[in-house]
Computed example of a mutant assay.
Amino acid sequence: MIVENGMGTADVVENSEINDDYRIDYLQKHIKKISELLEDGVEVIAYTPWSALDLVSLSCGTMQKRYGFIYVDKDDLGEGTLKRIKKKFFYWYRIVIDSNGGEI
Protein backbone atom coordinates (compact mmCIF):
# COMPACT_ATOMS: atom_id res chain seq x y z
CA MET A 1 0.00 0.00 0.00
CA ILE A 2 1.52 3.27 -1.13
CA VAL A 3 0.10 6.27 0.71
CA GLU A 4 0.80 9.99 0.80
CA ASN A 5 2.95 10.03 -2.32
CA GLY A 6 3.60 13.59 -3.37
CA MET A 7 5.82 16.61 -3.31
CA GLY A 8 5.70 19.93 -1.52
CA THR A 9 6.30 22.94 -3.73
CA ALA A 10 5.71 26.67 -3.72
CA ASP A 11 2.82 26.77 -6.18
CA VAL A 12 2.23 30.05 -8.00
CA VAL A 13 -1.24 31.37 -8.83
CA GLU A 14 -1.36 33.00 -12.27
CA ASN A 15 -4.69 34.17 -13.72
CA SER A 16 -6.53 32.19 -11.00
CA GLU A 17 -4.79 28.97 -12.13
CA ILE A 18 -2.00 26.78 -10.80
CA ASN A 19 -0.13 25.05 -13.62
CA ASP A 20 1.79 22.48 -11.61
CA ASP A 21 3.28 20.42 -14.44
CA TYR A 22 6.21 19.58 -12.13
CA ARG A 23 3.78 17.75 -9.79
CA ILE A 24 2.15 15.92 -12.69
CA ASP A 25 5.58 14.82 -13.94
CA TYR A 26 6.61 13.63 -10.47
CA LEU A 27 3.44 11.60 -9.85
CA GLN A 28 3.32 10.35 -13.44
CA LYS A 29 6.76 8.77 -13.03
CA HIS A 30 5.72 7.12 -9.76
CA ILE A 31 2.49 5.75 -11.18
CA LYS A 32 4.33 4.34 -14.20
CA LYS A 33 6.73 2.55 -11.82
CA ILE A 34 3.76 1.08 -9.95
CA SER A 35 2.46 -0.22 -13.27
CA GLU A 36 5.83 -1.89 -13.90
CA LEU A 37 5.74 -3.45 -10.42
CA LEU A 38 2.29 -4.86 -11.10
CA GLU A 39 3.51 -6.36 -14.37
CA ASP A 40 6.37 -7.99 -12.43
CA GLY A 41 3.86 -9.58 -10.06
CA VAL A 42 4.28 -7.27 -7.08
CA GLU A 43 1.04 -6.95 -5.12
CA VAL A 44 0.03 -3.31 -4.78
CA ILE A 45 -3.28 -3.02 -2.97
CA ALA A 46 -3.64 0.77 -2.89
CA TYR A 47 -2.12 4.05 -4.01
CA THR A 48 -2.98 7.52 -2.77
CA PRO A 49 -1.30 10.82 -3.52
CA TRP A 50 -0.90 13.43 -0.80
CA SER A 51 -3.28 15.40 -0.22
CA ALA A 52 -6.62 16.62 -1.54
CA LEU A 53 -6.23 20.14 -0.10
CA ASP A 54 -3.14 22.21 0.59
CA LEU A 55 -2.24 21.94 4.25
CA VAL A 56 0.28 23.19 6.76
CA SER A 57 3.60 21.42 6.24
CA LEU A 58 4.44 19.34 9.28
CA SER A 59 8.15 19.59 8.57
CA CYS A 60 8.29 23.40 8.65
CA GLY A 61 4.88 24.51 9.98
CA THR A 62 4.19 26.78 7.00
CA MET A 63 2.02 26.97 3.90
CA GLN A 64 5.06 27.62 1.67
CA LYS A 65 5.18 23.99 0.60
CA ARG A 66 1.90 22.95 -0.98
CA TYR A 67 0.91 19.35 -1.50
CA GLY A 68 -2.74 19.21 -2.54
CA PHE A 69 -4.79 18.84 -5.69
CA ILE A 70 -6.61 21.98 -4.59
CA TYR A 71 -4.90 25.25 -3.69
CA VAL A 72 -6.09 27.01 -0.53
CA ASP A 73 -5.58 30.77 -0.37
CA LYS A 74 -3.90 31.02 3.03
CA ASP A 75 -0.42 32.20 3.97
CA ASP A 76 1.99 31.38 6.78
CA LEU A 77 0.33 33.95 9.05
CA GLY A 78 -3.11 32.44 8.55
CA GLU A 79 -4.16 35.28 6.26
CA GLY A 80 -6.10 34.75 3.05
CA THR A 81 -9.59 34.27 1.70
CA LEU A 82 -9.51 30.45 1.99
CA LYS A 83 -10.68 30.38 -1.63
CA ARG A 84 -10.04 27.02 -3.26
CA ILE A 85 -8.57 26.65 -6.77
CA LYS A 86 -8.31 23.28 -8.49
CA LYS A 87 -4.76 22.83 -9.75
CA LYS A 88 -3.88 21.44 -13.17
CA PHE A 89 -2.84 18.29 -11.30
CA PHE A 90 -6.46 17.88 -10.10
CA TYR A 91 -7.75 17.60 -13.67
CA TRP A 92 -4.90 15.32 -14.77
CA TYR A 93 -5.38 12.94 -11.84
CA ARG A 94 -9.12 12.78 -12.49
CA ILE A 95 -8.32 11.41 -15.97
CA VAL A 96 -5.90 8.88 -14.43
CA ILE A 97 -8.64 7.70 -12.05
CA ASP A 98 -11.39 7.64 -14.71
CA SER A 99 -9.17 5.54 -16.99
CA ASN A 100 -8.04 3.25 -14.13
CA GLY A 101 -4.47 4.24 -14.87
CA GLY A 102 -4.85 3.71 -18.62
CA GLU A 103 -4.11 7.36 -19.36
CA ILE A 104 -1.01 8.37 -17.45
Rank of each mutant, 00 (worst) to 15 (best):
residue 5 N to K: 07
residue 15 N to I: 08
residue 76 D to T: 01
residue 74 K to L: 07
residue 54 D to V: 00
residue 17 E to Y: 10
residue 25 D to W: 09
residue 47 Y to F: 04
residue 99 S to F: 11
residue 98 D to T: 01
residue 57 S to D: 13
residue 21 D to A: 01
residue 39 E to R: 01
residue 2 I to M: 14
residue 104 I to P: 02
residue 94 R to W: 10
residue 91 Y to P: 00
residue 77 L to C: 11
residue 31 I to E: 02
residue 22 Y to E: 02
residue 83 K to Q: 14
residue 15 N to G: 04
residue 34 I to L: 06
residue 44 V to P: 06
residue 45 I to F: 15
residue 29 K to Y: 14
residue 5 N to I: 00
residue 52 A to S: 06
residue 84 R to W: 10
residue 27 L to F: 04
residue 45 I to Y: 15
residue 58 L to K: 10
residue 102 G to P: 09
residue 2 I to W: 15
residue 48 T to E: 04
residue 55 L to E: 12
residue 52 A to W: 12
residue 48 T to S: 08
residue 21 D to Y: 05
residue 55 L to V: 07
residue 70 I to V: 08
residue 56 V to S: 03
residue 57 S to V: 05
residue 77 L to A: 14
residue 63 M to L: 08
residue 63 M to W: 13
residue 44 V to E: 09
residue 16 S to F: 03
residue 101 G to E: 11
residue 24 I to L: 07
residue 100 N to I: 03
residue 100 N to E: 12
residue 74 K to F: 10
residue 102 G to D: 09
residue 59 S to Q: 15
residue 68 G to S: 03
residue 2 I to A: 13
residue 103 E to A: 07
residue 38 L to R: 00
residue 104 I to R: 11
residue 42 V to C: 01
residue 14 E to Q: 11
residue 69 F to N: 02
residue 83 K to E: 14
residue 3 V to T: 13
residue 48 T to R: 07
residue 25 D to Q: 08
residue 38 L to T: 05
residue 104 I to K: 13
residue 73 D to E: 13
residue 64 Q to C: 05
residue 61 G to Y: 05
residue 50 W to N: 01
residue 78 G to D: 06
residue 58 L to R: 11
residue 37 L to P: 03
residue 70 I to N: 02
residue 30 H to N: 07
residue 3 V to C: 06
residue 53 L to Y: 14
residue 2 I to F: 15
residue 50 W to K: 01
residue 83 K to I: 06
residue 47 Y to P: 00
residue 80 G to L: 08
residue 8 G to V: 08
residue 32 K to W: 01
residue 79 E to A: 11
residue 45 I to L: 13
residue 75 D to C: 07
residue 27 L to Y: 05
residue 99 S to I: 04
residue 67 Y to F: 09
residue 36 E to I: 06
residue 9 T to I: 10
residue 80 G to V: 02
residue 26 Y to K: 02
residue 28 Q to G: 03
residue 2 I to P: 11
residue 52 A to P: 03
residue 95 I to L: 15
residue 88 K to G: 02
residue 73 D to W: 13
residue 73 D to C: 05
residue 29 K to N: 10
residue 33 K to H: 14
residue 32 K to L: 05
residue 22 Y to M: 03
residue 45 I to W: 15
residue 86 K to T: 06
residue 19 N to L: 07
residue 33 K to R: 14
residue 54 D to A: 00
residue 14 E to N: 11
residue 66 R to N: 04
residue 41 G to R: 00
